[in-house]
């Protein structure tokens, strides 16, 4: 099956800022794809290019087999978008805004809309100016989820939602992915959300994709931290590849090891003789923090 979204070497400059600097991104049809990166990494710029709102300076983007810039109108019948910062028309009620956006996309499913309003606990009669940030976001989410589209582009859609609504959001995304087979590109900051929902993720920093793959694949990039009480002296440990930050505290050694290199290290430990051993499983958090850091080298 062809990819729902693919970009190659996207470059976008704003004056002297390189918002995107050769971005490659592939979102397979039917998957929920996490799009992660620190503030200013270029997530919103990417999504705007995929929507044909912003034009890339270099590189190629294909969305649902079309060119997002030239075929924008036709493509938009088949996709829905939720911006990170939703602003609505102050005089329109939430219900009016949902119906307006839905109709302009090609139609609203009344039953589905009512169901989503109920689940997101949103009063559609309030004027937009009376909504909080979270409620404005719910309006955009209901409008997007109620439409019959193949692809959803969600740009940090839960940044204003409370934990309860965040849970509803996860259920709904899971449903539309499992039951309806829709493709979702989800830009997010919330790791638990990404872990719960995403089949694959792309991590972007300073306008480039620094890592891409399934979460399991990414876990291999993380380090396991090990504390051990040894029988003999810790000869040769420091020389092994993949061992970092080795130190001794109260006669116990403590170090981090690249998850890929864990076997030779364990072998060496048993050779020396182990009295006790504690190992901390790799955490995604740690991986993301490491990849987010500006000096991270990949």
């Amino acid at each position: 099956m062809p990819a729902a979204i693919s970009t190659e070497g996207l470059v976008k400059r704003f004056g002297r800022t390189h918002a995107l600097d050769g971005l490659d991104l592939t979102v397979r049809t039917g998957e929920v794809h996490g799009f992660l990166g620190p503030n200013g990494a270029g997530k919103t710029t990417t999504i705007r290019i995929l929507l044909g709102m912003t034009r890339s300076d270099e590189g190629k983007a294909v969305v649902l087999d079309g060119d997002p810039w030239t075929d924008a109108t036709e493509l938009h019948r088949r996709l829905a978008y939720v911006p990170g910062d939703v602003t609505l028309w102050p005089n329109l009620s939430g219900g009016e805004a949902i119906d307006l956006l839905g109709r302009m996309r090609g139609g609203v499913d009344k039953k589905r809309k009512a169901e989503l309003l109920e689940r997101f606990d949103l009063d559609p009669r309030k004027k937009a100016r009376a909504y909080s940030k979270g409620n404005r976001q719910k309006v955009a989410l209901v409008a997007a989820f109620a439409s019959d589209v193949e692809l959803l582009l969600l740009d940090e859609p839960t940044s204003g939602l409370d934990p309860l609504m965040e849970e509803v959001f996860r259920e709904v995304v899971q449903e539309i992915s499992d039951r309806d087979g829709r493709t979702v590109l989800l830009s997010s900051h919330i790791l638990s959300e990404v872990e719960a929902l995403c089949d694959r993720v792309t991590i972007i920093r300073a306008g480039r994709a620094v890592e891409s793959g399934t979460l399991n694949e990414l876990r291999h990039l993380t380090r396991t931290s090990i504390q051990a009480e040894l029988v003999g002296p810790m000869d040769g440990l420091a020389q092994l590849t993949g061992v970092h930050d080795l130190k001794t505290i109260d006669g116990r050694v403590q170090f981090d090891v690249d998850t890929d290199e864990i076997n030779p290290v364990l072998r060496r430990l048993t050779e020396i003789g182990v009295r006790s051993l504690v190992s901390q499983p790799p955490s995604l958090e740690e991986l993301f923090l490491r990849l987010y850091e500006p000096e991270a080298v990949r």
Binding site: S93, G95, E96, D99, L100, R103, M104, P124, K126, A130
Partner: peptide
Amino acid sequence: PDRLGPTDGTLGSPLALAWRL
């Protein structure tokens, strides 16, 4: 108090929205 608006909208086109605005 802000008055409540309708649950369902009748607006469905860019022109209808522009008229409202």
